[in-house]
Amino acid sequence: MTLLSVRDLTVKFATRNEPVTALHGISFDIAQGERVGVVGESGAGKSITGFALMNLLSKPGFIDSGQILFEGQDVTQMSDRAVRKLRGNRMAMIFQDPMVTLNPVLTIGQQMIETLRAHRRLSYDEARQIALVKLKGVYIPSPEERLDQYPHELSGGMRQRIVIAIALLLDPQLIIAD
């Protein structure tokens, strides 16, 4: 079964003159359970592809044409509310820089627990237990202690694993690792 189908996707960036094309007519399919890697030099459009798939392009970027079908639904045609519901629950992204991804004024636990409770009807204790399981799953040492720490108190590698654990929190069907 096809989980994600991208058809003739073109992404552009508005400039003062003509829009600049970042991606032109890319197409691919990802089946349920399949792992796909996109390889290319810096500036080739790998990150732009991920952001487009998640419908996270910031202005001046925009999807000029094409379709992004996730479980048969065209993400490019969905309302903002529908896309927000899809993100996290069904699809997630692991961003390159964990210090930009993580909120520096919230503990790791606050960020994970808030994410879980925003998407699921869970008690604080239930959400904390799930967060601990996910941290253990990415081999975070002393996960109980880490939940009470702030991002700046952790090493870069540990922050990256925390970001991975956050992407895995809601057991999404599609994970995009930038």
Rank of each mutant, 00 (worst) to 15 (best):
Q96C: 08
Y139F: 11
E18Q: 15
M112E: 05
R81P: 04
V163M: 14
F70W: 00
G43R: 01
F28S: 06
I166D: 03
K59P: 04
Q173N: 09
S79Y: 09
L147K: 12
R35D: 03
P104R: 09
S142K: 15
S65I: 01
A52F: 01
E153P: 08
M158H: 06
L122T: 05
I162T: 07
A165G: 12
F70G: 01
G40A: 04
L147F: 12
G43W: 06
R121M: 12
E114K: 12
V75T: 11
R159V: 09
P151R: 12
T15L: 11
F62I: 00
S123N: 07
I26A: 09
S123Q: 12
Q129I: 14
I94D: 08
A14M: 08
F51K: 13
L132M: 08
I63T: 01
P172G: 07
I26G: 08
E153N: 09
Q77G: 06
Q67P: 01
T115H: 11
V20T: 10
R146W: 01
H24P: 02
N103D: 14
R84M: 13
G37M: 07
E126Q: 15
S27D: 09
R87H: 09
L86Q: 12
D64S: 08
K136T: 10
Q32Y: 09
A167D: 06
Q111M: 07
V133E: 15
E114N: 14
K59F: 07
V105Y: 12
I176P: 04
I63A: 01
S123W: 10
V105F: 15
Q67N: 13
R161Y: 02
N103V: 10
E126D: 13
L56C: 02
S142P: 02
H24N: 15
Q173A: 15
I162Q: 00
A31P: 01
S47G: 02
F51C: 05
E41Q: 08
K134Q: 14
P19Q: 09
S42Y: 02
I130W: 02
E144K: 14
D97G: 04
R121F: 12
E71C: 15
G43V: 12
Y124T: 11
E18S: 14
A22P: 08
Y139G: 05
A44W: 04
L53V: 02
M158D: 03
A44R: 05
M99W: 15
I108H: 02
I162S: 00
L23F: 04
D80E: 15
P98Q: 11
H119N: 11
Q149P: 04
D74H: 06
R120K: 14
K12I: 00
D74A: 05
G61M: 00
F70Y: 02
D8T: 12
P98Y: 07
A14E: 13
T21K: 14
F95N: 10
S42I: 01
L174E: 01
I130Y: 04
D178W: 10
A92Q: 10
D29N: 12
Q129M: 13
T107K: 00
D8C: 10
S123A: 09
T21P: 13
R87E: 07
F51E: 11
Q149I: 03
I26F: 06
A167V: 03
M112K: 03
